[in-house]
Nucleic acid binder design. Structure first.
Length: 310
DNA sequence: CGTCTTTGACCCGCGC
DNA sequence: GCGCGGGTCAAAGACG
């Protein structure tokens, strides 16, 4: 890891020094976008990208969703669909496990129009710890039906796998851990983080693949509605921007794709939520992507992309 | 003192 | 209806 990169990590207010070692946040095998070739000039600056109008194609391109990168993937899931189990991403399922190639470090896998936010909200209201005034949470029931109707409105979700010894990877934002749960069939717990910025409802879950303990599975949910924290901009954002402009695809991929992901603009999210764009393209035209390791994708995509209900 | 993590309890959805 | 698992809350403690 370069000094520059290390410097970035050291900006993380949460990390202790131990956590700064051995992060390898590179995209797994990502390289070029064979259809058009890698085009650094097509990359927006990091910040622009994060808040801007980049479409999904650009996103895919920027991430080197390339034929040669079968380990880099994304997916859509319908809003009514059951959330994808992270285990499917490589934790508990051989057929979908991302092969951790020696150089591979990261892949991303899922987006979902989801509503666990609503659920949390619902929960808070539903908890009604003190039914004082005999109100017995009077609005509780009334809200229930309403919530039920809203329930399926989920935040877009994006998961990816990172080869790292660090569970909580620095991505430029400030996160507060609000929970940790043991994961069934896994010795590693899952941690829940929320963006600490006010009014930002972005959450992320971090867990380690028990099949490949060196792989961290991070799931982002929602979109940041604010810029990068100032104190971190000069590091994460700038660096990412730099690397994204590098003519070397792999160099571009060696920084923080997750940062990139978690900032997917609303348009992208909508598209993803609608089950359009990239995944469909692949579904309809797999060969267009000239995936050499298509067998792997076949293993992955069906579970990652196409588990949508009609 | 403010911020963050830890952790047990709780709620909810889902499958049986 | 019950139990299980996932997700969240919130009090308590740690830390700088």
């Amino acid at each position: 890891m370069s000094d520059e990169q290390r410097g970035l990590y050291y900006h993380n207010p949460f990390h202790d020094d131990d956590h700064d070692r051995d992060i390898k946040p590179s995209l797994i095998g990502s390289s070029t976008y064979t259809e058009q070739g890698f085009d650094p000039s097509s990359y927006m600056s990091f910040t622009e990208t994060l808040h801007g109008s980049m479409d999904y194609n650009s996103l895919a391109k920027a991430f080197g969703l390339s034929p040669s990168s079968s380990e880099v993937f994304t997916s859509t899931e319908s809003s009514t669909q059951k959330p994808m189990e992270l285990g499917d991403l490589g934790g508990g399922n051989n057929s979908t496990e991302t092969p951790a190639t020696p150089n591979s470090s990261l892949s991303f896998s899922s987006s979902e129009a989801g509503g666990e936010d609503d659920r949390g909200k619902t929960k808070k209201e539903g908890q009604c710890k003190e039914p004082e005034d005999g109100g017995e949470c009077s609005d509780k029931k009334a809200n229930k039906a309403k919530k039920k109707a809203e329930k399926r409105q989920r935040e877009p979700r994006f998961a990816f796998m990172t080869k790292s010894e660090v569970d909580h990877l620095e991505d430029g934002y400030r996160w507060r851990k609000y929970g940790q749960k043991a994961v069934k069939n896994s010795p590693y717990p899952r941690s829940y983080y929320r963006c600490t910025t006010q009014k930002c409802t972005v959450k992320k879950r971090v867990e380690r693949s028990f099949q490949d303990p060196s792989t961290v599975i991070t799931t982002y949910e929602g979109q940041h509605n604010h810029p990068l924290p100032t104190s971190l901009r000069g590091s994460a954002a700038t660096m990412f921007s730099h690397s994204m402009l590098t003519p070397t695809p792999m160099a571009a991929a060696t920084t923080f794709p997750q940062e990139f992901l978690l900032q997917m603009p609303p348009g992208v999210s909508n598209q993803v939520g609608a089950g359009s764009m990239f995944p469909q393209n692949i579904a309809q035209n797999p060969h267009q992507y000239q995936v050499p390791d298509y067998g792997l994708l076949q293993d992955m995509f069906p579970s990652m992309f196409f588990r949508q209900e009609p």
